[in-house]
C-alpha cells in the first residue's frame, strides 16, 4: 500500500487561494487506509478550507468527491461533470493519482493535498512503516522475507556489515539491523546456506524512470497494430 501524509493546511490553502470553486477529489484505496486522503479526510479538508475562507471574509464553494482509485481511468472518467463545475482540483491521492487526474483533466489547475511517502504496511491503526522500494528485482525469497534494500538502512545486498551492534544499525541506533533479522530468520528456518550466496550487483539500470510494465496479453492484443 502507498503511504502518504496530509500536507500542512497552510500549504494547501495558499495553493488554492486564487480559486473560488474547488473540487477535492479523495482516493478510496491506499491513502484512505493510511488516513491521509479518504472520504473522511476530504470532508475535513473541505470544512477547513471553508472555515479559513470564511475567516478571511471570502465565500468559496468546495466540492467533495471520493473515487475508488485515482490511478484508474474508469474511476476518473465519470468525474468530468464535477470537474467542469469547478475552477481548480485538489487531489488527495498519491502522486500517481494526482498525475493521472491531471493528465485526464489537463485544462484545470490541479494541486496535491498529500505528500506521498513510501510503499509500506499498516502496522497498527496510525502506524505505517516502509517495506518496499519498488526496485524492480525482488530478493525476498533469499533473505527470509526481509527486504535488504529497504529494511537495511544502508541497503546492503550482502550483509551484514561491520556496523551492526546488538541488532541495531550504526547509521541510526534507533533502527534495526535488517541483516541481523535476516540471519535470525534464516537460522530459524534452517536456511543459513542462503547467506553464502553472493548476490550480484543490483540492476539499478532497470529503475530508470519512468518505468513501464507491459503485460503479455496487452502486447499480443495491440502489437499487431504497430
Amino acid at each position: 500500500m502507498i503511504i502518504a501524509q496530509r500536507k500542512p493546511f497552510k500549504e494547501i490553502s495558499e495553493a488554492v487561494a486564487p480559486y473560488d470553486k474547488i473540487l477535492i477529489v479523495g482516493c478510496g484505496t491506499c491513502v484512505a487506509v493510511c488516513l491521509a486522503g479518504g472520504e473522511k479526510e476530504v470532508g475535513l479538508l473541505a470544512s477547513q478550507l471553508k472555515l479559513a475562507a470564511g475567516l478571511k471574509g471570502r465565500r468559496i464553494e468546495v466540492g467533495e468527491i471520493t473515487v475508488e482509485r485515482q490511478c484508474d481511468r474508469e474511476f476518473l472518467e465519470p468525474l468530468c461533470d464535477f470537474v467542469a463545475d469547478h475552477d481548480a482540483i485538489l487531489s488527495m491521492a498519491c502522486g500517481a493519482g494526482v498525475q493521472f487526474l491531471a493528465q485526464l483533466y489537463y485544462f484545470k489547475p490541479i494541486f496535491p493535498a498529500v505528500d506521498t511517502t513510501f510503499i509500506g504496511v499498516n502496522e497498527a491503526v496510525g502506524l505505517f512503516t516502509e517495506r518496499c522500494r519498488a526496485c524492480h528485482h525482488c530478493y525476498l525469497g533469499l533473505t527470509g522475507g526481509i527486504c535488504p534494500l529497504t529494511m537495511c538502512p544502508k541497503g546492503l545486498l550482502n550483509g551484514p556489515c561491520g556496523g551492526t551492534l546488538n541488532g541495531k544499525c550504526e547509521v541510526d541506533p534507533e533502527k534495526d539491523c535488517a541483516w541481523s533479522e535476516i540471519y535470525r530468520r534464516l537460522e530459524q528456518q534452517g536456511r543459513l546456506d542462503n547467506l553464502k550466496k553472493i548476490v550480484p550487483l543490483h540492476p539499478h539500470a532497470r529503475s530508470t524512470t519512468p518505468g513501464q510494465v507491459i503485460h503479455p496479453a496487452y502486447q499480443r492484443r495491440y502489437s499487431a497494430y504497430e
Binding site: P8, F9, K10, S13, L44, Q48, L49, L51, A52, L55
Partner: peptide, 9 residues
Amino acid sequence: YLLEEVGLE
C-alpha cells in the same frame, strides 16, 4: 489543531 490551522482559537 485543525481549528488552529484554519485560524480559529
